[in-house]
């Protein structure tokens, strides 16, 4: 029985323009199998990864945005989005995909995975991690 550590994946890149977002998401989904306490942070252009309505049919790229919906099933249900990053980009919480998870300790109630946080709150979250991985 190994010790559970707090892992945070920090996402700072927009999807599609570079491969960071897709690679990061794949690592999170793989890493979810190791039963650690996993959270994700979306800072700067990383917030664009969660934008609703992505549709790559005309641009011949892989639309990987539906895969974020699987995170809840892997108990990755703490997605922290920095409020200032949204506002600088003309976005708000309603622009993001409505990601949810089911809480087995609360009669499988459906709960929001996305939490909008301030810069100060995010700084505290970073501080309390054991491991931080950047994409």
């Amino acid at each position: 029985m190994s010790e559970t550590k707090k892992f945070m994946y920090v996402n700072r890149h927009a999807p599609y323009g570079t491969v960071y977002a897709l690679e990061g998401l794949e690592v999170v989904l793989i890493g979810a199998a190791f039963e650690q306490e996993v959270s994700m942070a979306f800072i700067g252009d990383g917030v664009f990864q969660l934008k609703q309505g992505q549709d790559t049919v005309d641009s011949d790229m892989k639309n990987f945005s539906p895969a974020y919906r699987a995170l809840g099933d892997y108990e990755v249900n703490r997605l922290y989005v920095e409020r200032d990053s949204l506002e600088e980009r003309g976005l708000n919480e309603d622009d993001l995909m409505p990601l949810t998870w089911e809480d087995e300790d609360d009669d499988w109630a459906e709960k929001k995975s996305i939490h909008i946080v301030s810069r100060a709150q995010l700084a505290d979250l970073l501080e309390e991690q054991d491991v931080i991985l950047n994409f």
Binding site: Y16, T56, D58, S59, M61
Partner: peptide, 9 residues
């Protein structure tokens, strides 16, 4: 347009 659409804009 296709790049806007891919990004959900």
């Amino acid at each position: 347009g296709p790049d806007l659409k891919a990004r959900g804009i």
